[in-house]
Amino acid sequence: MNGLVIDDVSMIFTLPDGGEVHALQNVSLHLEPGELMAVLGPSGCGKTTLLNIIAGFLAPTAGQVHLNGRQVTGPHKERGMVFQQGALFEWMTAAENVGFGPRMGGATRAEIAAKVGHLLDVVALREFADEPVYRLSGGMQQRVALARCLANDPDVILMDEPLGALDALTREKMQGLVLKLWKDTGKTIVLITHSVEEALFLGERLVVMAPRPGRIHKAFALPFADQGVEGDTRAIKIQPDFIATREEILTMIWEMEEEIMGGGNTG
């Protein structure tokens, strides 16, 4: 089967004191190549654990993940990862970071230079190629991280709250860039976020997860990502449809949290 298949995955962490935490329970998902799925949920719902399992950093307690028919057993360059922040190599320049994957794969100097030049153009950082990454702003660093991931031409891009540490304005602009890259490259993308608005805007599909045990609560198919590729970001976010869906999901998460807290008067 083509695409990314998550088949009945469960994850149980054993704590040092012998207790157990059900981080994920019977999670099944199927992404066709080129789909963009946003995963949303309150903290502790296992969404990062799910991403780490897809990336191959964790082996699930039960169940399997397959990509294009091959089982995931460890990290591989077919599954690129964009982290929240602090995963760039600060001892390298922007260009060296972007060229890291091809260089590890034994590409020639000329091949690396061509690819890096192109990708730095894509993320509009050409003039910062030779800057050490620690001198770049948070938004620029995340653009380097996106370019670094694309340089390996992965089948799937896994994003773990990649815009979470950015200020609100930069974040809006970056959402537009993520959509553009998704449409231009046709990559399969799994995006973890705790921003309802971001999940709605970017997710062609949206999965809301519930905690304890981490599981899929509800799945949506959404039209906004397609509109966002062409249209004006701000206009989409004030559409009645967008606002109604946002309220629906916010209410859902709110109730979920109330339930966890025992329905108490948690403000």
């Binding site: 950093f57 591989h76 690129g80 001892w91 590890m104 390996n152």
Partner: peptide, 24 residues
């Protein structure tokens, strides 16, 4: 996350040692 990033970019164990752990 730096080590994870390097493995996801296709680095081998010696490459992770040389290009990530050592400079870090």
């Amino acid at each position: 996350s730096k080590v994870h990033a390097a493995y996801s970019l296709g680095a081998s164990k010696p490459q992770v040692l040389r290009y990530v752990i050592l400079p870090n």
